[in-house]
Design a protein around this nucleic acid. Structure first.
Lengths: 369, 369
DNA sequence: TTGAAAGCGATACCAG
DNA sequence: CTGGTATCGCTTTCAA
């Protein structure tokens, strides 16, 4: 028997003593998996109630070797985008009876370290965009913590010799033939070495980008525009790179000018944009578009991406993304990995939709899509 | 010595063996607080690196009796409001070297249970608005987990006999004389029984509401409006109740019609609003205002509250709240409690500002404020 | 059904 | 400085 220091917390020992049983029995009625005599269970429950006992997560976690918590890492929560993704994620993770830890990597000097630390307190992790290098991801996955990637190209590094994926080059960038839907391929199956490569086993989930980009491009062409400009840093975002690539598939080469990902980025780019004198500006996301629109005062047709709340009020033509579903779906994929319900990697792509409003210019008789 | 099962995780025992030292020594170089010979430290560090060892948070937490994590509970992350609060919170909590757990209580059937559960995995908790009843809050605080309340009236229940605060009645609702700045009062000091009452020891932090409400009311009066309507459920939100009260201090009685807290709530209330035929509608928050504006098509002057991103693009007259700071400040107050740096309760009120745009109607020559 | 005891993976006190 | 060891609070065999 242990000594029961009447200190702060009431432990399972206190309950056991109060109920006149062993801690094993208390644990049993707590977990409810092993049969316990009704009378005993009643006494235990009574003791628990009287003592206002709450089992220690730390103790339980250590014994069960699990955290009952999932994490999610995103670049920044400032924009409306990730807030929605996180909401969707929290929604299903909580429903699954687990807690959710969040981490914004934006601007933190030691992002890798923080992500590693986070990985140490969860049973599974969702990583959004380029929040950390591939090697860190592979390392975490290899350590046994399931990982799901959102809005990010699949990790390509091989275990033990992780390396960066080039400058966020989307699949098929240099080789169009390689654009086959990754969801069909099964890397794990084809592993020549027969060794499980953690990198290729990581699930990914993205919003469809290329097709919407093409739709958007065609719509703009319908307006009669011929000179375009892509505003946003395509080398820092997988999504931006794909969007840029998509519009080029229809428009041919489209010059791009990088800028910060927020409204300020769009405002600041106004001069450069004017210098290019384009017929229309395709912005990487709504915030950039909104900022630019504000700075140009509607003198040039502009489109955004994401369809954030403000886009509707600003009359911004954009592409709607299922942000909430992105997070929710990621939570589900991750859970399948945590529970071991699935071992084969999945790479999902969620549908998006072109939303035409007024910012792209007057619409004669053109219908949407 | 323990048996070293070559299982999944590498523990401190593995490192100790590899380095040829005791786990105590490994722990020492890990914590870095106790002196260790340079040579020994080097060997340990080497072993740690080779084994890619990462100390278990669960093990450490159990031994240290702390989680190194803080939590935050908000009603819903859907609106732009709480996303900002959470961002501010995460920002400073991470800076403090701790992790952050989030929980959205919205629509969850067992909110109290989930909050209690969360309380069991953190060293401190921030509760936003009316996410759980006072008794739960008091219970948590009494259990030793510091709590900070955001946008919520101070808990009034007495330990052991918790009860609800009436229908979200703001301080001074029935007794104007009691409106003295609570930050000056020191409940703990005045505790007649001499017993620490956990309820009154809970820190609170709010955005200033009444003064801004009065400013807004006066501005509306300046427009020449005389018949007003307050749109929003003042019985479900402390902030709404205060705002409504503030405008009444200037406008006299103002009828209110309750509605959901989002855009849909505003849209749905359009008919009822029209039936009242008011000169202007003062909405509890921007989303409601935006929804109503959409439904009424600008036929009636409208104002919001919060100054979310979309408000700017919709030309909505509103009151700006320092949402980010609300979260950041809460994190700081909480940390002072966790570290024990402060034991006296604090009740802070952050300044807000009236932002006049076009939704309240044409401005002849009137200046702002 | 129930109890005793062996961990789970650290921390930290107590001797050497 | 360093090693041995007693916790921390709970889960889970192994016997009874």
């Amino acid at each position: 028997m242990k000594a029961l220091t009447p200190g702060q917390g009431v432990t399972i020992y206190h309950v056991a003593e109060r109920a006149g049983v062993s801690i094993a029995t208390v644990s049993r009625v707590l977990r409810g998996n092993v049969p316990v005599s009704a009378e005993t269970a009643r006494r235990v429950r009574e003791a628990i109630a009287e003592l206002r006992y709450t089992p220690s997560r730390l103790g339980r976690g250590l014994a069960e070797r699990q955290h009952a918590a999932n994490g999610i890492v995103f670049p920044e929560l400032s924009g409306p985008y990730y807030a929605e993704v996180v909401l969707g994620y929290e929604s299903v993770v909580a429903e699954l009876g687990r807690s959710v830890l969040i981490l914004s990597s934006h601007g933190r000097s030691d992002a890798p370290g923080m992500v590693r630390e986070l990985a140490g307190r969860v049973d599974g992790l969702v990583l959004c965009t380029r929040t950390v290098d591939d090697e860190v991801i592979v390392e975490i996955a290899a350590s046994g913590v399931p990982v799901v990637l959102i809005a990010r190209t699949p990790v390509v590094a091989r275990a033990g010799s992780a390396s960066r994926t080039g400058a966020m080059t989307p699949a098929g960038a240099e080789d169009p033939a390689a654009t086959a839907d990754p969801a069909e391929a099964d890397p794990a199956e084809a592993d020549p070495a027969g060794v499980a490569d953690p990198a290729r086993l990581i699930d990914t989930i993205n919003a469809e980008n290329r097709a919407s980009a093409r739709d958007l491009a065609r719509h703009l062409l319908g307006h009669g525009y011929r000179r375009f400009l892509f505003l946003g840093d395509t080398t820092a975002s997988f999504d931006f790179a794909e969007r840029w690539m998509g519009v080029r598939e229809v428009l041919g080469d489209v010059p791009r000018v990088p800028c910060a990902f927020d409204e300020e980025g769009g405002r600041a780019a106004a001069d450069v944009v004017r210098a290019h004198a384009p017929d229309a500006v395709i912005c990487g996301n709504d915030e950039i578009a909104l900022g630019l629109a504000e700075a140009t005062g509607g003198s040039v047709p502009i489109t955004g991406w994401d369809d954030v709340m403000a886009a509707r009020y600003a009359g911004l033509t954009t592409v709607r993304q299922p942000m909430r579903e992105l997070g929710a779906r990621a939570a589900r994929l991750l859970d399948e990995r945590i529970t071991g319900a699935r071992s084969r990697p999945r790479h999902e792509v969620l549908p998006t939709r072109l939303v035409i409003r007024s910012s792209c210019g007057p619409h004669p008789e053109e219908g949407s899509r």
